[in-house]
Computed example of a mutant assay.
Amino acid sequence: MHQIILIRHGEAAKSPNHADPGLTNLGQQQAQLLAEHLQQQFPDGRGVRLISSPKSRALQTAMPVAVQWNKEIVQEPRSIEIPSPEGLPLAARLDWIRALLNQQWDQLTNTQRLWRREMIDYLLQLEEPGDEYHTTLIFCHFMVINSVVAHIRNDLNVVQFHPNYTSQTRLNLQQGKLTVEELGQQKAIDNLIQ
Rank of each mutant, 00 (worst) to 15 (best):
Q3A: 07
A12L: 05
K14V: 13
S15D: 11
S15Q: 11
S15R: 06
P16F: 03
A19I: 10
D20R: 02
P21C: 09
G22H: 06
G22M: 01
L23M: 04
L26R: 12
Q28F: 10
Q29Y: 13
A31Y: 04
Q32F: 10
L33T: 13
L33D: 12
H37Y: 14
L38W: 06
L38S: 01
F42N: 04
P43Q: 08
G45M: 03
R46W: 07
G47M: 03
V48K: 03
L50Y: 00
L50H: 00
I51Y: 14
P54S: 00
K55D: 08
K55W: 08
R57G: 00
Q60Y: 02
Q60R: 08
V67D: 13
Q68A: 15
W69P: 02
K71C: 00
E72W: 07
V74F: 12
V74H: 14
V74K: 15
P77H: 07
R78Q: 12
S79N: 13
S79C: 15
I80K: 11
P83F: 01
P83L: 00
P85N: 04
E86N: 10
L88G: 00
L90V: 00
A91P: 03
R93P: 00
L94T: 14
D95K: 13
W96C: 02
W96I: 06
I97G: 03
L100M: 12
L101D: 15
L101W: 14
Q103M: 09
N110Y: 14
T111L: 14
T111C: 09
R117L: 09
E118W: 02
M119Q: 11
I120Y: 03
I120N: 04
L123M: 08
L124A: 05
Q125S: 13
Q125A: 12
Q125L: 10
P129L: 03
G130Y: 06
E132A: 14
E132C: 09
Y133W: 12
I138T: 06
I138V: 11
H141Y: 08
H141W: 11
H141K: 09
M143G: 01
I145Y: 01
I145V: 09
N146C: 07
N146Y: 04
V149Y: 05
V149G: 04
H151I: 06
H151L: 04
N157I: 11
N157A: 15
V159D: 07
Q160H: 04
Q168K: 12
Q168A: 12
T169K: 02
L171C: 09
Q174F: 14
Q174E: 15
K177H: 10
K177W: 01
L178F: 03
V180A: 06
Q185L: 15
K187M: 14
K187L: 10
A188R: 15
A188G: 15
D190L: 13
N191A: 15
N191F: 11
N191I: 06
N191P: 07
I193N: 04
Q194E: 14
